[in-house]
Write a protein that binds this DNA or RNA. Structure first.
Lengths: 227, 227
DNA sequence: CCTATCGTTCTGTCAAGCAGAACGATGTTC
DNA sequence: GAACATCGTTCTGCTTGACAGAACGATAGG
């Protein structure tokens, strides 16, 4: 069938898409510029978005994202039923490796960063929770593919060794190691990864990362159950 | 002026409102029941929501919340520009008190829980990030009001003593202590709180919570700057 | 004072969106 | 195995929701 849609809804969502990192507030005219919508259209759409808490309007007329997004976003993350053990494991990983640690889940052909703890070092691979990244690149992406049934040669290798390591795959300056997180029934729940600048990821660092990752995944396996 | 709205947009947002804790997936017929919308209407609206990543559709036709909510929700939280110091302070608070620690911000006449770390105890005041709570009750709500300009007598008392304590205010079985978090310019950025079951919040526990809260707020004051 | 730009209001036009029936598929009960 | 119930899907006539975009008042800048 022909792809259905509701134009007005997509216009409203276009407005929400206009907000990006570092742009906390957007005035009406900037929204018009970014979305290509008429100001009168934006005002109508924003009235509805505001009523449901997706936007807030300041006294100066500027718009910013509203708390409903945080509420539903948190609900989304909790829908993965991961309990409260992920973050302590990320902390252990950061302590063991001094690098950034993250947890991803697969969503279609993307991976979503649900949890992350950045390295305390000033020069680091910075990453934000909420980030959407490709599945077919980066250690975590490849691990998610491999443990979710992919049959290509790389996936078979990753499954065989139980982890993935990439250097300069998704980002030319970043190296990463990742392991799958399975629950007590052996089902894939996500991927843990440690990422670092390439020049810091020598073989000793690699071993340290893998050891820590595997220990964390093992503990998580015990903690994650689905009745 | 008359309140503007876009009906189709509000219908779409109604669909997103249908999702609640513990209901990861909702089939079409349940959405129809919960929203009062016709199934054909829901399918059209959901096609647009899905296209923008607000919903995912499983192979069995059931809907669940999508990753865009997590991405925008994370963006919303980061728009408060709180850096990465909140969570370590929450951890310190939980370690010092063995109770649940949270951080709230004010949004209009509500407070939003941006960060929380639940107590490790089995019997505890459980709370989820993303929760929206009233401003006029609970220690954290009263502290936010007091340090954001409220002139009533309770607010003046709280400002004078620099913290708020409630027992059985919002929830009859819960006690809470809260302090304001100000930045290095003295502006209110949020409220830190510790909450516990009433019967565990004797005067020794109260003192322990307040001491830990004030230390955390002091460290956060040094860490939060806004140029 | 003039000009530019912002946000706000208004309304005629038209096609977007809805209601809701009909249908096929699947599951349940007897 | 048949009948029934419930699910999700498709289709279309009709109504009104939503838009485009002009006009306006307020504010800022030169």
């Amino acid at each position: 069938m022909t792809e259905q849609k509701v134009e007005a809804v997509e216009r409203a969502l276009l407005i929400l898409e206009a907000f990006q990192e570092g742009e906390e507030e957007l005035p009406l005219s900037t929204l018009a510029l970014k979305t290509g919508l008429y100001k009168s259209t934006i005002l109508r759409l924003c009235a509805s978005l505001e009523r449901f808490g997706y936007l807030r309007r300041g006294e100066n007329g500027s718009f910013r994202l509203g708390p409903t997004l945080w509420r539903l976003g948190s609900l989304y993350r909790r829908s993965f039923d991961l309990g409260e053990q992920i973050r302590p494991e990320l902390r252990r990983l950061v302590e063991a490796t001094q690098e950034t640690a993250s947890f991803y889940v697969r969503e279609g052909e993307e991976r979503i960063c649900l949890y992350r703890l950045n390295s305390p070092r000033a020069v680091r691979h910075h990453l934000d929770e909420g980030a959407r990244l490709p599945l077919h690149s980066g250690a975590a992406g490849r691990v998610l593919l491999a443990f979710d049934g992919a049959q290509d040669e790389i996936s078979q290798t990753i499954r065989g060794q139980g982890f993935g390591i990439t250097r300069g795959d998704r980002d030319p300056e970043i190296a990463a190691a990742a392991v799958p997180v399975l629950d007590n029934r052996g089902r894939l729940r996500g991927a843990l990864s440690v990422s670092a600048l390439l020049n810091r990821f020598d073989s000793a660092a690699e071993k340290r990362a893998l050891d820590a990752l595997q220990e964390s995944a093992e503990r998580l396996r015990g903690a994650l159950s689905r009745d």
